[in-house]
Structure formats: structure tokens, C-alpha cells
Design a protein around this nucleic acid. Structure first.
Lengths: 236, 236
DNA sequence: GGTGTCTAATTGTGATCACAAAGCGCTTAA
DNA sequence: TTAAGCGCTTTGTGATCACAATTAGACACC
């Protein structure tokens, strides 16, 4: 494992556990850590060059957000697997929270915010063309959370973040299999138009479609491909 | 501070941090710990007769669920205050999650579950008559989560639990001021009837009304009474 | 060669110590 | 009486050690 620098540039004064949390969160949201990947406190600590202590707090928080799990039998740490059952719940929750956040953001989007949306979408399109899954997921995340942050609803925004943390690793697996070419057309342009018009209902509607299609893709993937399902298989 | 026994009867073999988490959760959901109450890791540790270590993990989890907060300027631990802004978000989220959980539970409620609902409701009515706010909140919680657990949707149920954790302390303040007599008629009988009929739509509807009225009570309380309101929730 | 057993390493958990920062209480001066 | 100064205490944070449980790997045996 390579020792990474914990991006000290982003937040020098933040506590170590917060930095570890941010680093792990980003990796999870971008799907850098695959589902069922076993982790260990000491491993993460070594990777980030800190003691196991702050890792314990960061991991405990991620477990609370269901972005990580402690296996009941083992007490061992890993990235949870996304069953169809849980994916459906995730989809429901995302369809409640995120369209509403878009609607709340609509009357509050400043010119700069909309400009950032255009930039994020441009980055996203470039990533799509070049087939860079990581860059695509990063840009997609930035696009959505530029909107959610503008909604001025910390609680709901936190819920959305938790939902993304949970779907990130699995989303990466699916996108990695399909390739960026097969990804469904997103509704980002519709959203931008809605925000320029200050039309909350239109923003909500296009966000709902965007999420619905994306999650349907993952639901299909669970059925069609034999993705690593936690059967009785003893392979790690 | 009295040292309490951490209810070892409930889960002897569970780890200490899990027991501390359970104990704190229960206190928060029942509103035993008022908003803005300052806490300390060592204080909690002493109270439960453990070292500060497991407390740190339990508290970190509760912070992730926004049931506790670390003041940004102080880095000091306390129960968050519920502003009108956050209460509105809580209400929205509860109105999304919990009625749906009721609908999902409707076709799955066993005879025993419905019997438990009747028992919980009876306990609740007794508490209402005797004016016992603690018992009322406990019974109300049991009633709702008997339903949510039956929905077989761990993720959504966890979301509901987090929302209750956040509203518990404030709810207690409001109910304490109003007294149990002024509490609006709940819709528990309607729900029980819906579950007996296996009518998911009716269950969803009565749950929505139950939550809506309860939260409206709290919204009114924020405006009418001068509850301990921090001047401004602005950042910076 | 396959199988069981035993040892050594790794894991999460808990306790204890050290430290900087912030709060608290007392004192003191205007 | 009030407000500022100062030392002690408490706070969260991080590191290190100890321990039981589990795992993985080597070894011996059939």
C-alpha cells in the first residue's frame, strides 16, 4: 500500500480523523474501493501515515453512514455489498431527497453556481468521450452536489451524501462493466435550463429522471450479470 | 453523576461502545437529554463506568447521525439545537420515509405485531392520562418502530431511527411545555385498522397524518414560545 | 497428495498517557 | 461594582500498549 499524503493542502488545520474521513469518503464515492473489499484499521492508518486512533473515529462514522460495515460474525471491516433489496431502498431514498434538493436550489442558484454546473458537465462529457470512469464519476458527483449545496438544507444534503457513499463502490463496478459509452444520456442540460429559468418544478422533474435512469441501470446490472453476490462462495 | 449499569441484561456480549451507543440513543430518543446540553467524553465514560475510549466511538457515530454535535468554534460536545430550518427538513424527511415504511409493513404485519401495536397504544393512552411524558414518548417510539421493523427495510428503518434521534430532545421540550393533555389525537387506531385490513395505502395515509400533526406541533412551538433559540444559525 | 493441527500474525477493542486549546474561578486593579 | 489578568482544570485529540478472537500458513501425519 502506498502512503498517500492525505491532501494536507485542502485542510491543514482539520483534525486527523476528519482528514481520514474525507479521504475515505472521496475514495468510496468515486468507487475507488470495490464492494466486499476487506479493510483494516491499521492498514488504513499506515496508508495515510497516522496512528490507528483517528482511523477508528473516521471508520466509525462511515459505518454509521453505512458506507462501511463490520461483519457480524467476523467483526472485520469491509465495504458492504449492495444487494438488490438495499439498492431498491437506496433508489427510493435518492428519489425522495435529491429531486427536492434540486427544487429547493432552483431559486437560490447564483450565476456562479450555474457556471460551475456548465464546467462540471463539460468535464463530464470529456470523461465520457475518453472513457475515463473515474473522471466521469468525479464530475457527476461535483455536478450534483453543486446543486445540493445551493439548496441550503444541510440535513437533506447530508442524507444525499450518505446515499452517494453507499452507492459509489457499486456504481463504479457497474460503470466499469458497461463502459462509459453505454451510459444513458443524463439530464444535466435540462437541469441547467431549469436553473437558469429559476423553475423549481422543472429542476425537480429532471433530477428525478436523472436519478431514476441511473439507478435503473444499476438495478438491471444486479439481475443480468453475476456480480459478486454474497452467496456461499468462499472466494476472496 | 450517577453511574448506571449500561443495561447489561439487554446485551451482555455486545462491545462496550455499542452498549454506550444504545444507552445514549435511548436517552436521546426519549428526550432525556435536553437540547444544547453540554456533554463530555469523560463524563459519559464515568457515568457508564467505562473508559473514554468506547465513548469516543459511540459519540462519533451519534455525531454522524446528527444526534450530537461538536461545536465548530469550541470543539465541545453537546446536543444540537433544533432550529426552524432544520425542523422543516426533519419534517420533510420523516414524511418521506415513515409513511412509506408503514405501507411496506402493511402486507407483512403478523398477528403478533398487531397485538404489540395494541399493547403499545394502550401504554401510550395510560401515559397520556397520567401525564407521564417519558412513558408517552417511549410508547410512541415503540409503536412506530414496531411498524418500521416489520417493513423489512433496514436502510430506511435506519434513516427513520436517525430522524427520531434528532427530534427526540426537542420533542421532549415541546411536550413538556404543552403537557400530555394538549397533544393532538394520534392516528394509531387508524393505522391498526389499516394493518388488520392489510391496506398499505391506508397505513401510509394515516402515518403521514400522524407525523404531519406531530411535527406541526413542534413547528408551532418554535414560533410561539421563546424556546432556547440560538440567535442566528448563520455560518461565519 | 490430501487433511488435520498447531503456531504465528493480524484483527478489532479497550485502557492509559500526553498534549494543546478552551473554559472556569479567583484575584486584583480601576 | 466592574472588568481585565492569570493559573488551574477540563476538554477533545492522538499515540501507544495490552488482550482476546480470528485468520492464514506451515508443518506433520495418514
Amino acid at each position: 500500500m502506498k502512503v498517500v499524503s492525505l491532501k494536507p493542502a485542502t485542510n491543514d488545520n482539520a483534525s486527523a480523523h476528519a482528514q481520514v474521513y474525507e479521504a475515505l469518503s472521496e475514495d468510496l464515492i468515486q468507487g475507488q474501493i470495490p464492494p466486499l473489499k476487506p479493510l483494516s484499521l491499521r492498514g488504513i492508518a499506515q496508508r495515510y501515515g497516522v496512528s490507528p486512533m483517528p482511523v477508528r473515529e473516521a471508520v466509525r462514522r462511515l459505518i454509521a453512514e453505512k458506507a462501511l460495515e463490520l461483519q457480524a460474525e467476523n467483526k472485520r471491516l469491509r465495504v458492504p455489498h449492495l444487494t438488490e433489496h438495499r439498492l431498491k431502498q437506496l433508489t427510493m431514498a435518492r428519489c425522495w431527497v435529491e429531486p427536492e434538493l434540486a427544487a429547493m436550489a432552483a431559486p437560490r442558484m447564483a450565476r456562479d453556481d450555474i457556471k460551475r454546473l456548465r464546467d462540471d458537465d463539460a468535464t463530464l462529457m470529456r470523461a465520457l468521450k475518453s472513457g475515463d470512469v473515474s473522471a466521469y464519476m468525479q464530475a457527476n458527483h461535483d455536478f450534483h452536489f453543486t446543486i445540493y449545496r445551493a439548496a441550503d438544507a444541510d440535513l437533506l444534503c447530508g442524507m444525499a451524501r450518505s446515499l452517494w457513499l453507499q452507492s459509489g463502490p457499486f456504481m463504479r463496478v457497474v460503470f466499469g462493466r458497461l463502459g462509459t459509452v453505454q451510459l444513458p444520456k443524463d439530464h444535466h442540460q435540462d437541469m441547467i435550463a431549469a436553473f437558469e429559468a429559476g423553475n423549481a418544478d422543472a429542476a425537480r422533474a429532471s433530477m428525478a429522471e436523472d436519478i431514476g435512469e441511473g439507478m435503473n441501470l444499476m438495478l438491471d446490472a444486479i439481475g443480468d450479470h453475476d456480480l459478486p453476490q454474497p452467496k456461499r462462495r468462499g472466494r476472496g
